[in-house]
Amino acid sequence: MTPAIITNNLTKRFGDFTAVNGINFEAKRGEIFGFLGPNGSGKTTTIRMMLGLLAPSAGDVQALGISVKGNQAELQQRVGYMSQRFSLYNDLTVQQNLQFYGAAYGLNNTDLKSRIQDALVMAGLEGRENAKTKDLSGGWRQRLALSAAILHRPELIFLDEPTAGVDPISRRAFWDLLYQLVADGVSVFVTTHYMDEAEHCHRLAFIQRGNIIARGTPAEIKKNMMQGQVLEIASSDAVNTIKILRAAESLDLQEVELYGSLVHVVAQNVEKKKKDIQKLLKKEKIQIEDMAVIEASLEDVFIASMK
């Protein structure tokens, strides 16, 4: 089967400014492809080009095996989109929103009825059909937006920061839905800046200022991008631990970052530096409760690569 998405030197310039700079990647069918990047890095611009809403300045993109350019109408019927800005009508009810998007994709009344029922079940909104969408909390709304975007059973769905500003439990519930979709054979392209979500993707691309700086499975990215290991330290005083370790130039540490209440240190041969670190902290009267070399998380990689 052809890949879900192939981009070929895809580029978008706004005047002198290059928002997306010749990016290349491939998203496989039936997988979650994560597109990671900080604010303004070009994620939305890329999605718009993949949907045919923006014409590329150079390069091209294929979705579901056909070129986006010139086939916009066919593709629009076969893909789904949940835009970054709230994609539902706030002033309409749950039912009215679902009805509209179903009809927009040409569903007939019988199909529409059963699909709306499915969507309500999926979003967990049975019995709340007549609630105004603006009265739903963020998590419900995002799940509703997702179920609206797949009413027409797209083969590929684009989600632009679908969980931004949503509480962790709702985010988990949203990702459970994505896994269900993938289990049903849908290909998912999702942008995010949450690192924990990136870990859940089958494949990733990091974009920064319009350039892809890393791509692959989460494991590949960690292996390729991380120049060192991560040492996790639980101490009596995390803030001072960071201060002291950052000042200790002789140790040659690449990164010293706060990670929850813990401290993550990134360095080459970190195992050998453990003793020196212990000594140094002891001298400053900081108690080390636990210290272990751990597997790097994507967040460690991401922060390291941003420097």
Partner: peptide, 13 residues
């Protein structure tokens, strides 16, 4: 203004 136009444009309408 509310960004729903973008969503509309992505539909086959």
């Amino acid at each position: 203004e509310h960004g729903t136009m973008e969503q509309l444009m992505a539909t086959p309408i």
